[in-house]
């Protein structure tokens, strides 16, 4: 950005050589300023990432002995709902028999469960983050008997896989282990 308006005082250097040297000086000065500003900005921005206590937040243990066949529980993990569903033999059957080829996000049911009767998924629609309905027997469960997201009409099957609607991916499976037959630790 140069401007040719009336300046007071003589320019600091005359001639071509002085010009190059001055440009180099300006450039190095500007570079220092830019690097300094960037280095100062980095920790400020990084401080907005999850803090150590947030990252260390406890994993949760869920007692699944109280969930009757065919029903589901919603538990909170990292501020998000996790669906724990006690699937009926028919639902398991349906999930297993689905032809992988018809799926948008191709994943066999066996990759999504550790024990077939327990389906554990993060209850966040992969479209834009709403919580799908279908946890209660009385709620709408969509065309495939799993969950239905009322925000934009995504249908999930009994394995939590996307079957119809705008969502691009299956419901996510959180990391979990069976501590015992009746207790699952999520996270």
């Amino acid at each position: 950005m140069t401007a040719d308006s009336k300046t007071h005082g003589a320019p600091p250097e005359d001639g071509h050589e002085g010009e190059t040297r001055r440009d180099f000086l300006y450039l190095s000065g500007a570079a220092f300023g830019a690097v300094g500003a960037a280095c100062a900005a980095a920790p400020l921005i990084n401080s907005l990432n999850p803090a150590k206590d947030t990252l260390a937040l406890a994993s949760i243990e869920v007692d699944i002995s109280q969930i009757p066949l065919g029903e589901a529980r919603t538990v909170m993990w990292r501020g998000k709902p996790v669906f724990v569903r006690h699937r009926t033999p028919e639902e398991i059957e349906e999930a297993k028999d689905t032809d992988i080829a018809v799926l948008g996000d191709k994943q066999p049911d066996s990759d999504r469960v550790k024990k077939p009767e327990w389906l554990i998924v993060v209850g966040i629609c992969t479209h834009l983050g709403c919580v799908p309905v279908g946890q209660k027997m009385t709620e709408e469960r969509g065309d495939f008997g799993g969950w239905f997201c009322p925000c934009h009409g995504s249908h999930y099957d009994t394995s939590g896989r996307i079957r119809k609607g705008p969502a691009p991916k299956n419901l996510a499976v959180p990391p979990y282990v069976f501590v015992s037959d009746t207790v699952v630790r999520i996270g």
């Binding site: 320019p11 600091p12 250097e13 040297r21 001055r22 000086l25 190095s28 000065g29």
Partner: peptide, 21 residues
């Protein structure tokens, strides 16, 4: 270290610019 080098460079720039003032 960064600030000291920067101060040095800025001093050189300042000297150079002011040399003809």
């Amino acid at each position: 270290i960064f600030l000291m080098v920067m101060a040095g460079v800025m001093y050189a720039i300042k000297r150079k610019i002011w040399a003809g003032a």
